[in-house]
């Protein structure tokens, strides 16, 4: 399947003061698909999402390194105009944040700050996007009443209309249904499914069923690390790594106990593989070895070869610019952890 990339993250690190919230993540987010970022609370889902429109910079003490390319352009380049970037990225937040003005003004706010003054044009925009977010029929008679009077589900749809009204390319959803009742949530989900033909959608969600219903592509984060990513069916039905599997099954995630560490830096494939294979031979069944390599081809090839040998790959993860970590369990037919 040929996937066009829309947002490309390269070696992204984000710190809040001393705490590293995102640890060297590199990932491509496909164009005009729904990508769901899943993972337990505090794993950096929202942080990753908010790095896409640079809202992360507003947090006190937040520091970003690495690149995020949108349409091939690095958004952290000082030359990039941040308002222009944010216009491209509609945001749906956890709780709907309506502006303290009327329904009409909420939708017209975006176009207006970007310079559209013509009343007729604004009317047209307001109507078009209220229809697109399936709110028009409910509010057409009271466009000038305060938006805070709407139910919370209607407010979230209003926020969607407001976001769409600036004609973004990407919709970022930060658990957009978590504050809503089931019916409103379903309504928002339905809208998102309709919208994915036109927009790239990135959703943070902690509802696995929602990810299953909506996502074409899954990113699984754990403690700021990218554990696994891929097409939704693959990741959700057939996760490669232990942590993903545990998370999807609702089990407790814990770091595997490492019995042996192998530093195979500065050796190339297949030599490092042979060393690893010999080391695994000495190990007891069920024990775990952590292998560190310093080139990408080894990080791709060694896991394949080891899996071929019948062992279990628990995790493959990029540690920093150069190094990869491969966690292998010597196979004895079942997991020990």
């Amino acid at each position: 399947m040929e996937i066009k990339t829309h947002i490309s993250v390269k070696n992204l690190n984000i710190w809040y003061g001393q705490h590293q919230a995102i640890n060297n993540i590199s990932i491509d987010i496909p164009d005009k698909k729904i990508t769901a970022i899943i993972g337990p609370s505090g794993c950096g889902k929202s942080t990753l999402l908010k790095s896409f429109n640079r809202l992360i910079e507003l947090q006190d003490g937040a520091k970003v390194s690495g690149k995020v390319l949108v349409d091939g352009e690095d958004i952290y380049d000082p030359k990039v105009e941040v308002t222009h970037l944010r216009k491209k990225m509609g945001l749906l937040s956890q709780r709907p944040q309506v502006l303290p003005v009327s329904i009409y003004e909420n939708v017209a706010y975006g176009p207006r700050i970007h310079g559209i003054k013509d009343k007729k044009k604004l009317d047209e925009i307001v109507q078009r996007y209220l229809i697109e977010s399936n709110l028009w029929d409910e509010v057409r008679g009271r466009l000038n009443s305060s938006a805070s009077k709407l139910s919370i589900g209607q407010q979230q749809r209003l926020c969607l209309a407001r976001g769409l009204a600036v004609e973004p390319e990407v919709i970022l959803g930060d658990e957009p249904t978590s504050a809503l009742d089931p019916l409103s949530a379903e309504c928002i989900e339905q809208r998102l499914l309709e919208l994915k033909n036109k927009y790239t959608i990135v959703l943070v969600t902690h509802i696995l069923r929602q990810a299953k219903r909506l996502a074409d592509y899954i990113i699984f984060l754990y403690l700021g690390n990218l554990i696994e990513h891929g097409p939704a069916e693959e990741v959700l039905n057939n996760p490669k790594y232990l942590k993903t599997k545990n998370y999807l099954e609702g089990k407790f995630i814990e770091e595997p106990k490492i019995n042996k560490e192998l530093n195979l830096k500065r050796t190339a494939y297949p030599n490092n593989f042979v060393t690893a294979k010999l080391a695994l031979g000495d190990l007891e069944f069920g024990h775990i070895v952590k292998i560190i390599v310093d080139n990408e081809s080894s990080a791709i090839e060694i896991p394949k070869a080891i899996e071929h040998e019948g062992h279990k790959i628990l995790e493959v993860r990029k540690l920093n610019q150069n190094d990869w970590e491969i966690v292998v369990q010597k196979h004895n037919g079942g997991y020990v952890i």
Partner: peptide
């Protein structure tokens, strides 16, 4: 903070956000 975020994420400048929101 969230309501500022809402305005900023629409591409408003800081001053626009302050003035209108």
């Amino acid at each position: 903070f969230e309501i500022r975020e809402a305005s900023l994420s629409l591409g408003a400048t800081k001053w626009q956000t302050i003035k209108y929101v």
